[in-house]
Design a binder for these strands. Structure first.
Lengths: 330, 330
DNA sequence: GGAAATTATGTAAACGTTTTCATTTTTGAT
DNA sequence: ATCAAAAATGAAAACGTTTACATAATTTCC
């Protein structure tokens, strides 16, 4: 090292004001020459902060989450933090493992996209780390939330169908207990009632947010006799499945049936016909969630309560007026 | 603490054999009661290993990479490591920042999916961390590689078209300097020659691996007069773009044109018609890459050279025999 | 020019582990 | 019972920082 104490080096780096101009230069020169890089582990040990945020997500390969991650990563790096990803597949064991990341100081906070507190969080409730929920609000406790107004989005979607003249609209739900499923269903029912239509339980089917789930829902509907003229799907993947099933059965969209999704994933504009949907500002959600997270971690004043970002109805080719004649199918 | 020295606790945890049955039980009881969790930062500081692997990728939201990440994450957690993600957007500055993660001991190694060494790697060449390249081989240096035989995959794709009877096959490339572009092009040309067809430079167009890029390539082709009867696209996204452009112009696939992609991303089976493509075992690539990485990090003997996983031709609906009559379009 | 105030630097403790080495306890053979 | 060998434990150093405190150097002001 070049002529100065180890404490001074630390100060030269972190509190340049506290150190004389000349010595600071000497220090910087030495750093440049030796290629010195501070040992982050020692820093973390001393400062009790790892400058890492853990994102827990059920499935990284899901385009929807991937886009949120993009937003999370962007503001994390901008503010000098790193992003750790935890792919949980909703496995309690995995969740519990990742939860220990904060207890062991590997991460300073957790952004949850799983819709529930990680397994094992109950026991340690008192010393829970900073947590923010993105996309899926968390029922238990009062975890800060960043996302959209799902009920409002669903209402917009269904109102759009009603305005086109549809009177029988099916709702293809996600998993029954999922909060997104229920909120969007509430919006669906509200829009129906506001349009003077009645809610027919036979037109409400559980799915699982997957393409295959959408497909199956259509098959189940066709087995019964009461058909809708339009489908409101709780997410785009299922809407795509519906589109596929319909086209396979030889129907035309939007001629025979209208289909609307939720999320506006990138591929939505590439289906045949392109999918009408409710767009969520995914990247913004990620950015807002990470901003809130880091504010909490750094002890900045963070306003309590949820951050609700606006959704947008994207009208493409999969919705249109229903046929005049009521379809009767064998 | 319950009756025993701090050193013994450490041993009870990491070397249970070195500690007496009875004391081990006491220690475990105390751990359970206090909810003790070891401080990972102190462990890393002491052991000089953070048990973290950094994955550098140009774009997490790209389905292709997201699936690789899934594989990486799976074996990382299985072996007690965490996955850090670095979204670089090919920005040298960002790459350089992430490179310091290993120098500062935040990560033990780097899995590169960027196709090139991170910016700044040249200067520190001597003390480069363990690196493995996934998907895109790295030209400079001799970085262990895990991926597929792109040339072979391309050859398989184009041979499939040739066997269907196509004599004029266009190649929609990725960015010109990209290694995937050039390897797949080599396979394309080889298959052509092996089928007794000649390579027409007018049928080779640069794209950018995006849907829009595929679309534009079609437009550019239609401006000229020499049309192909089939399109081999360097990835599925561009193939989807081609499909879209073709359908927009009113053509039928595979009636008027055949289209084949590369990768087999999840949506490939959802296009109209479903896309014929070359499947890469993405998850396996991720798993193999992480396995190699951790073996390197842990000093296990790792066989040098590349791990090449097999690709598979997935025949769906977008390829068929060409029309007998040569199309002449205005 | 000297005391007081200010600024710059150095010293050393602390963060929580792991591990070497030394010491104590146990075991087993005589 | 005794002693040697083996097994279990403890003491303390080390990992590389940051920071409170003490000290040294500089400036300011009369």
């Amino acid at each position: 090292m070049a002529g100065v104490s180890i404490a001074t080096v630390s100060r030269a780096i972190h509190h340049p004001g506290k150190v004389a101009e000349t010595t600071r230069k000497k220090v910087n020169a030495a750093i440049a020459k030796t290629g010195f890089t501070a040992n982050a582990m020692a820093q973390s040990l001393r400062s009790k902060s790892s400058k890492m945020i853990l994102a827990m997500v059920p499935d990284i390969s899901n385009t929807f989450f991937a886009n949120i991650l993009l937003g999370l990563e962007a503001v994390a790096t901008r503010r000098g933090y790193g992003l750790l990803i935890g792919n949980t597949e909703n496995d309690p064991q995995t969740e519990a493992t990742y939860l220990t990341y904060t207890r062991s100081n590997k991460a300073d906070g957790i952004v949850l996209m799983t819709g529930h507190l990680p397994f094992g969080a109950a026991e340690v409730r008192q010393h829970l780390p900073p947590i923010v929920a993105a996309c899926e609000e968390i029922a238990e406790g009062s975890v800060p939330f960043v996302g959209v107004d799902n009920q409002h989005g669903a209402r917009t979607a269904v109102r759009h169908l009603a305005e086109l003249g549809h009177r029988r609209v099916a709702y293809i739900s996600g998993p029954p207990n999922n909060i997104l499923s229920t909120e969007r269903r509430a919006g669906y029912e509200l829009a129906l009632r506001q349009s003077g239509l009645e809610v027919d339980p036979a037109l409400i089917l559980d799915g699982d947010f997957s393409i295959e789930g959408g497909r199956l829902a259509v098959e189940r509907l066709f087995i019964r006799d009461a058909l809708p003229t339009a489908f409101f799907c709780a997410n785009d993947d299922m809407a795509i499945g519906v589109l596929l099933a319909l086209s396979q059965r030889g129907y035309n969209v939007p001629g025979d049936f209208s289909v609307i999704g939720f999320d506006d994933i990138p591929f939505s504009s590439c289906t045949t016909p392109p999918l009408t949907t409710i767009r969520q500002p995914r990247r913004l959600i990620g950015e807002a969630a990470m901003t809130k997270m880091l504010d909490m971690v750094e002890g900045k004043p963070v306003k309590a309560g949820a951050v609700i970002l606006p959704v947008e109805l994207i009208i493409r080719g999969s919705t249109g007026a229903p046929r005049e004649i009521d379809l009767r199918l064998d």
